[in-house]
Write a protein that binds this DNA or RNA. Sequence first.
RNA 1: GGGGGCGUAACUCAGUGGUUAGAGUGCUUCCUUUACACGGAAGAAGUCAUAGGUUCGAAUCCUAUCGCCCCCACCA
Length: 842
Amino acid sequence: MLPKAYDPTSVETPIYQRWLKAGFFNPDKLPNAKRRKPFSISMPPPNVTGELHIGHSLDLTTQDILTRWKRMSGFASLWLPGTDHAGIATQILVERTLREQGISRYAIGRETFLKHVWQWKEKYGERIVEQIKRLGASCDWSREHFTMDPNLTTAVQTAFLKLFADGLVYRGERVIHWCVADQTAISDLEVEYREEPGTLWHIRYPLLNRKQSITVATTRPETMLGDTAVAVHPEDKRYQSLIGQKVKLPISSRLVPIIADDHVDPSFGTGAVKVTPAHDAADFAMAERHALPKPAVIDQRGQMTAAAGRDFAGISTLQARDLVLQMLRESRLIAKYEQISHSVAYCSRSNTIIEPLLSKQWFVKTKPLAALALKALHSKKTVVVPDRFAKVLIRWLKNIKDWNISRQLWWGHRLPIWYCVACDTPTASIKEPRARCRNCGDRAYRHDEDTLDTWFSSGLWTFSTLGWPKLTSDLKRFHPTSVLGTGWDILFFWVARMMMLSLYFRQEVPFKTVYIHGLVLNAEGKKMSKSKGTGVDPIPMAEKYGTDALRLSLVIGTAPGLDFRMSEQKIAGQRNFCNKLWNVSRYVLSQGSPPKLGGDTAKPRGGTLADAWVIARLNEVSSTVTQHLAKYQFGLAVEALQQFLWKDFADWYVEIHKVEKNTAVLRHVLRQCLILLHPFAPFITEAIWQAVGEKRLLMIESWPKAARLTAAQKNSLPEFGNFQRLVIGLRNLKIHGANNQPLSIQPTAKLNRELLARLTGVAFADQAPAEADRVVIADEQLMVPGAVAKQYADWRQREVEQLNRYIAQKEKLVANAKAPGHVREQAKSDLSAARSRLAELG
RNA sequence: GGGGGCGUAACUCAGUGGUUAGAGUGCUUCCUUUACACGGAAGAAGUCAUAGGUUCGAAUCCUAUCGCCCCCACCA
């Protein structure tokens, strides 16, 4: 009834449809829904216009494993999906596309541009959702959200207004990171520093009314047009006499003071630094301390302003640099220059150099919020797995700086801020204020043009998607969420912000546990990069090898928090496993009739030694898998399961051990394996489950409770070890004796020849071969050809040597008076087992 | 400058105080085609980076060193 090879493509879509139709992704629709305890996960929302990459697949796989496992374990398991509007990323994408059609966003205006973005969102938004479904994600689509849905927009506005009312957002003039290409400010986290070679110019600044000069060092000579001071370290002996004197700036001829400030590093360059408050954050801080003016000489397009002087206004910074250097050379004011390596700030989005600019932006005061998050981390209200990431978070939160949340973008949540046209006083309001300006009494307002940082809305994600600011039953039931699963790369961007905002608005953590997984690297061990074409694309892989193979390969051989490499070969290996499962199922279902797996009652008793053994192993593995899952050790869980299913069950119990099978055992083991494997490989397990006519879906089958091994089962484990060795021994004889010649073996002792033949598949002769030697395997005596006996003896000799080493070690441990009792007890029983095996071997 | 991770078989990686250190891939030899060649058996292959220390016992904990990688930071 099952085809010969597993064909994922024909199976997966109908199965997902069937799950959807059953409605169990929605925890309210589960059997006994009301009695179930809640378990909830918020899906990290992918960029709405993005493409599913392998990192998402890992995210989705681990979360689906948890969701399915908990659902099967009797929880009201909610995995809430959604997508993110991703302000900058999306706007840039749409802008680029329009530009290719010759359309500029400035030409069409804000409203028309936004219409285009919404169209884009409608067109491509569904695609990423389809790709998420393709991976088998069992999330509740009836609760799906988008960060710019009306109710989420309300949440964002409510949050902003509250922060404003509480004095936690403010408008400030700061030197911010300005991206000239994207025409917006970006946050500290969106800046990427790269070590690059550069030239450090040493420039003489002549002192006023003296022949002396002070030499400053800079990599950006053009900014000297905006200098308002020269700073030295207060204790720098070289410059003591100069502090407080005035310098006449070359080119602009402005008079600026020499100031003393701790910030200056006396050992760098000349120990004297030019201060450009409008174009350097550190210089800005110094200017604040010393009440210096802050003229802006570079504008938002990266061009020199009028303040830079008549010769410079309107030219680019690079042209200005050349011109400044040329003028300095002519005045012989360049003391020297040297090649250095320094880090240069780039915009991580547009890949262009950041222009630090003085600008008015909106900030969130993060200190009080970070304090809440720190407290929650210290008191383990939120547990981080693995816990070293808690330390990373704590360190970041302790040194947190205010968060620039305004972006000069059109796509996003527009700031609910209105400025009085007359006096520029801001008022926070969703709609245009009707009241007069509280400052000047005027009535005319203009709406702030800016939008909020994408991460502001994602920071509210765990509770805004559950209905906040309304106090819905979902919010009460599913918040705080149980687990957040994500990669370490967005620890600060997202995890930290969610903690701060949830604790502030809900007085509770957003999630009880954060599970941090590593990043998926390519076969060369580098971060996957689409532009370089070195990535592994999940969707084509799922199509080629099956979604389950992809999911398994993302989990097996990995540890929490560690990056790992992904290769097609690894996925192919898991495809082979799926095929093995498929075929062993085919075999099991071909044994006996009707082809049913049997219900929970099919727990076979008694049976042969092999039966007891395989069930004991199953129970052992079943509890191992559960334990590993509880510790988020997905890799270990799958590994234990695969070893059992493939090696112990399929290869040993089914294939090597040729005794007639107990179909009840076969079915019971297969049934349990399908249940245990389902969270990891949902499609194939459900497909097999359904192929045998089970009415209830596997996805809501009960997860096995930890089974205690019976005494008989416990004993069967070592006993069966001996039995396995008997069979291996005979197989070895057969293999070595074969060489296309019939093997002559005659059992001479207790074991019935017929039984031996059935156990092992080896044919036995009526008479011992001419040059027969006696061989003893597990108490049974056999007469075999001399050459075969020799090989068997060699094989046995190796085992004897190993055993002797093992026994020596165990004896040492047993004799070790300082070792704990249970360890010595264990060693004692290991020792007696090894000794009896040694005795068997003679 | 501060912080973190990794170094285990040819390759990719698990294991993190107490079985003879494991898996997958690859390799060697053999078997098999009425569940599966996307198969089965057997095998070769590792001073668990190096050097100290703690311990009855260390791949596992501590310290140092070497090598690789990453994150954070106002290196003018």
